[in-house]
Nucleic acid binder design. Sequence first.
DNA 1: CTGTACGATTGACATTTATCAATCGATCCC
DNA 2: GGGATCGATTGATAAATGTCAATCGTACAG
Lengths: 231, 231
Amino acid sequence: MRPEDADAIRDLPLFHDAREETFAGLVRAGFLQRFPPGVVLINESDPADFLHVVVEGLVEMFVTGAGRETTISIVRPVGIFILAAVLNDDVYLQSARTLEKSQVLMIPGEAVRAAMAADPAFMHAIITELARGYRRKVKEVKNQKLRTGAERLANWLIQEDAACGGEGWIELGFEKRVLSSLLGMTPENLSRALATIRTHGVTVEGASMRITDRQALLRIARPSPLIDLPE
Amino acid sequence: MRPEDADAIRDLPLFHDAREETFAGLVRAGFLQRFPPGVVLINESDPADFLHVVVEGLVEMFVTGAGRETTISIVRPVGIFILAAVLNDDVYLQSARTLEKSQVLMIPGEAVRAAMAADPAFMHAIITELARGYRRKVKEVKNQKLRTGAERLANWLIQEDAACGGEGWIELGFEKRVLSSLLGMTPENLSRALATIRTHGVTVEGASMRITDRQALLRIARPSPLIDLPE
DNA sequence: CTGTACGATTGACATTTATCAATCGATCCC
DNA sequence: GGGATCGATTGATAAATGTCAATCGTACAG
């Protein structure tokens, strides 16, 4: 692992306040692995052996059930996944696959639990992270139950733009089918929702989207801080 | 508060392993309040001042947005709500109202955070509880995104029956409109889903439901342990 | 350069879900 | 008892979403 990658991981809220030796121990216990695109990293129902840190690339969290499949979230560098399953030493509820060539640090669950017991600051960071993750999920449920597909799309555009600097310029980093699944709709439905939204201040060219009239987009998105503000 | 109520709270996973003085301090810091039915206890977007423990009665957690409203969960005795918001000293993301005459212990957030800092066992229980809550929410998202309304109803019946002893006898403890909102559908839609399900091993008489043919119900519910097993 | 593969888009149609309106049935209050 | 109220149900219709099929366009391999 390059030093700057270690620094980036160290800057994560989860590790930022941990003692130096705690962090060093976790990194030492971990395996840094490289994967090509399309590799399934973890499978729901398997025991949660590792906390995963996406150092480079892109990872999709997805779930299956009732004969269907849907995307729960996209994890970019530097981000973690599967913390809750590791802490409770339980099975995974979600699966993960790489969307690009990726580099992932895998830290054994046992090491995470030991570090937590030994370092109160790390324990505290875990609580904050878990509480934030819980609140993110509450917001996902709200987004899903209270909004139509077109509304979810409109709000996703606004959020994504804000996360990329608010320049009104969004470059989709993955396939549209993945976005449709993340938003809880079919690819066909997303195509139509994008067509609809073109008359509301958005232009689409392949994987590039541009917000040309923010007011018009806000009118149909009607964003709410209690759903859309990042947790 | 009656002694048996205190004992019931003490038995909650969150408090079970806490030191005696931690638990006593939390109860001493708390206010035991009685409320008539239909009272809004907390309002989303308000600062999270209290951890709430439902000692008696029934509380509905609900959210609003996009001009709509939906039920997130029903909290029965003895259950807690709003832990994550209190720990992160943030605003509520959900509102709560009583569905019946209820008795609620309200513990100041500051007391919870202080107790957590002073009692490692309590801190550990909080982590477990948060991780479980997170995983419950993941399951809710799966339930919502992967299933149709009728499927959610069928699985809710199976779960509810299991929670009440598995006798095939379910007594709805609240209005059907609340159930419809919990399942993410309109009251009209629930009526029709119940009508549909009558041909699949369920009889309905007012607020009483009976599973007469479990195999038939399981066939359309297709329950999955990674969605339906209680966390 | 060209054929192939694959994702995106579009059209037609089916299913699911929501909305609006009317009615039913039970409860409560006078 | 009788009227009023409120939730549940039913019918008719509309909107949202999913499914199936065909086509388009681009990227990639040969």
